[in-house]
């Protein structure tokens, strides 16, 4: 008798648990306009599209409003790069007080061979480069994937002197 009771209990419990699942999907079905998670990508590229900050899209060299970057052309990123995607071309210039100084000429970035491994950014002592979450990077020709990251006419951002820091 007890086994029969257990049998019936099992059947009823099975129906209850199935009904729970069914009600969940029915709720999704009815309220699809609110709960829908589809990104309608080409339609919403100018409006609601959102890519997470942590997405690795490409390496960028940020410039501030004075067209200054923080790269000192130390080539640590170039050494850290496992597949030679970075080429730092530097040049010698003379400063006002007559000293010779090595500055960045071209920061060449080969996106076609970059695996977005983040090692260059970890290696950079100046935090000059960072990863951006851009994703519309496809082009029709492979040669177009070679970028120069420093803008024309940009220069190294001068470090604030101790005096300036105190004030």
């Amino acid at each position: 008798m007890k086994s029969l009771f257990n049998y019936i209990k099992e059947v009823v419990y099975a129906f209850v648990s199935l009904a729970k699942g069914l009600l969940l999907t029915l709720r999704y079905f009815v309220t699809i306009r609110k709960v829908n998670i589809t990104e309608e990508y080409p339609n919403n590229r100018t409006t609601t599209i959102s890519v997470k900050e942590r997405f690795y899209g490409e390496v960028v060299l940020p410039h501030d409003e004075n067209n200054e970057h923080k790269c000192t052309a130390c080539t640590l990123c170039q050494i850290a790069c496992p597949n030679n995607s970075i080429q730092i071309i530097s040049k010698q210039i003379e400063t006002e007080d007559g000293k010779k100084k090595r500055v960045l000429d071209k920061w060449v970035y080969h996106l076609d061979s970059c695996t977005l491994c983040y090692q260059c950014i970890d290696a950079c002592p100046q935090d000059a480069i960072e990863m951006k979450n851009s994703f519309e990077l496809s082009v029709y020709d492979r040669t177009k994937l070679i970028y120069q990251l420093n803008r024309p006419g940009s220069k190294l951002k001068e470090k604030p002197t101790v005096k300036e820091q105190q004030s």
């Binding site: 999907t25 999704y28 079905f29 699809i32 709960v35 829908n36 998670i37 589809t38 309608e40």
Partner: peptide, 10 residues
């Protein structure tokens, strides 16, 4: 359509 709506898609 039913499959989509139940899986939160269009």
């Amino acid at each position: 359509k039913v499959a989509g709506f139940m899986q939160l898609r269009w």
